[in-house]
Amino acid sequence: MNTVMTWSVLLGTSVLCYAIKLVGYLVPARWLANERLQRINSLIPVVLLSALVVAQALAMKTHIVLDHRMAGVAAAFAALMARAPFPVVVISAAVTSALVYRWH
């Protein structure tokens, strides 16, 4: 990882995310009113967030690795099942993962 890459990611993400926010203020309402487009759009966060959970918990580049991260996510899952608030979910994941990491 290098500085050029991190700056490119930062600026590329910022420009595109801003442009996307601006779209709705610039185009006529009917352009994005298509029902199919709205249905697909509402599912995009669902599939991306699921994929991100999997990638972050189990992937190391192009390998599947079962390690402390998965223990942390399992703790988060348990916390969510117990209806814990968001900060408790994140903290229990971090604590569990850190403990498994240190004892390995």
Partner: peptide
């Protein structure tokens, strides 16, 4: 970051964002 569990906190946050859906 791994010693403090930060690498697990991010997927946990994603799971938390996904959960209500």
């Amino acid at each position: 970051p791994a010693a403090w569990g930060l690498d697990a906190a991010v997927p946990a946050a994603f799971l938390g964002l996904l959960w209500p859906r």
